[in-house]
C-alpha cells in the first residue's frame, strides 16, 4: 500500500510543480507584455459604456 502511494505522491508533486512553473511563466509573460495593453482596452470599453448612460443634468 505504502509502496503504491509514494509514486503517486511523486507524480502529484511533479504535476503541481509543473503547473506552478507554467502559471509563473504565464504571469511573467502577462507582466512583461500584456498587462497594460489589456487594461487599456478594458478602459476604452468602459468609457464607451459609461458614455451611453443617461444622465440627469437638471438639479
Amino acid at each position: 500500500m505504502k509502496k503504491a502511494i509514494i509514486p503517486v505522491c511523486k507524480l502529484l508533486g511533479l504535476l503541481l510543480g509543473a503547473a506552478a512553473i507554467v502559471f509563473a511563466a504565464v504571469q511573467a509573460v502577462y507582466w512583461l507584455n500584456l498587462d497594460n495593453k489589456f487594461m487599456f482596452l478594458l478602459h476604452r470599453i468602459l468609457n464607451k459604456i459609461t458614455d451611453r448612460v443617461p444622465r440627469d443634468r437638471r438639479f
Partner: peptide, 19 residues
C-alpha cells in the same frame, strides 16, 4: 460603479501610471 461612473475607469490605468 464601473459601468456607471465615467471617472472610475481611468483607475484601470494605475499599473501603467505606477510604471
Amino acid at each position: 460603479a464601473l459601468t456607471t461612473y465615467h471617472w472610475l475607469a481611468p483607475y484601470l490605468g494605475s499599473g501603467s501610471m505606477l510604471d
